[in-house]
Nucleic acid binder design. Sequence first.
DNA 1: ATTAAATATGTTACATTATAACATATCATT
DNA 2: AATGATATGTTATAATGTAACATATTTAAT
Lengths: 164, 164
Amino acid sequence: MSEISAAFPSPGHNHDHCVDQALADARSVCRRRGARFTEQRARVLELIWQSHRPLGAYQILDQLRTEGRSAQPPTVYRALDFLQDLGLVHRLASLNAYCGCVAPGAQHQSQFLICRECGVVAELREQAILRVVTEAAVSRGFRIDETSIEVAGICPDCARKPSR
Amino acid sequence: MSEISAAFPSPGHNHDHCVDQALADARSVCRRRGARFTEQRARVLELIWQSHRPLGAYQILDQLRTEGRSAQPPTVYRALDFLQDLGLVHRLASLNAYCGCVAPGAQHQSQFLICRECGVVAELREQAILRVVTEAAVSRGFRIDETSIEVAGICPDCARKPSR
DNA sequence: ATTAAATATGTTACATTATAACATATCATT
DNA sequence: AATGATATGTTATAATGTAACATATTTAAT
C-alpha cells in the first residue's frame, strides 16, 4: 500500500463520492469479515459521513429520532462499537466524537488534524509519525497497543478567511 | 533546555521526592504568575501526585470527601482547571483523567505513554515527535494549536511480569 | 419448512463525567 | 473598615456512556 496521506478535503470536492465510497467500503469490509451491514449500521455510518466533521453520539441519536426511528443511546453506541471494530469509524477522544475512516479495512494507527474553527478533520497515516512515536516508546521499554494522536488547530481554509 | 525525556518511574523510586518537587514547583509557578496556591488547589495537586497513575475527577472528589472537606464536582473541576492553566497537571483525553506534569512551567506539548496493565503514565517531551507531527501538519497547511498524543500499551515493569 | 443457536435490536434504568448559575466567603489594597 | 477581585459553597442539570434484560431477526442445521 502506498503511503499517500490524505489532506483536508477541498471545500468544493464531490462529497457524494466520499459517502458512496464509504458505504461501498463498509459493505465490502463486512462481507469479507462475515459481519452484517444492517440498516441501522448503514444509517449511522451515513450520518457520520454527512460531512468531514466528527459527530457526537447524541447528535447521531437526534438525527435518527427525527427520521422516526425508535432510538435510544444503546442503539447508537452499538452501531458505533460495531463500526469501530471493523475500522470503519474512529472515535476522537479529545472531542468525544466519531468520524468516518478514510481507508477502512487496512491496518491503521492514524493521526488526526482537527480544525477548531470549522470542525473539519483530516485523517493522516504518516508512517514517519508512527515510526518516531514507536521509537520513543521502544527506547523506554514500552510496547504500544494503540495510539491516540489528535492535533487541534486551524485548517488551511479557515486560515485563509481572517478575522473570525 | 535539554531534551532529556523522562522514562517510566522505577518501581522503587522515592516517590515522596516527586510529591515534594511537584508542590514546590507549583508554589514557584504560582508565585511567578501571581496566582494563589490555596489549600484546595494544593490538596488536589497532592492527590493527583499520590502516584504516577492518572486520577479521575470523581476519584479526587471522593478522596476530598473522606477527608471531611465539603466538596462538590465544581470544587474539583475548578482546581483542575486552575492547575491545567498553569501547566501543573495534564488531562488525558483517552482516560478522562488527570496526571501531574513532570516539568511544569515550561512550554510544552507532551506525549504520554499509558500502561493498560498498571495504569502508570510516562510523560515524554520528544522534540522528534513534535517535529514530525508539525511537519505533517505544515505540509497540509494546518496550523497546530495543541496536541493530544496518548499511547496505550504495556510498560516495561508489567512486561516483565508475564501472564496476568 | 422448522427449529435452535447466534446475532441484532428495543427498552428501561442508571453510571460517569462535566458545567451553569448564583450565593457566600476570603483576600489584597486602599 | 470599605472595596473590588478572586475563590469557594451549593444546587441543579447537562452531556456522554453502559448494564441488564426482553424481544426480534437472521443463519444454518435439521
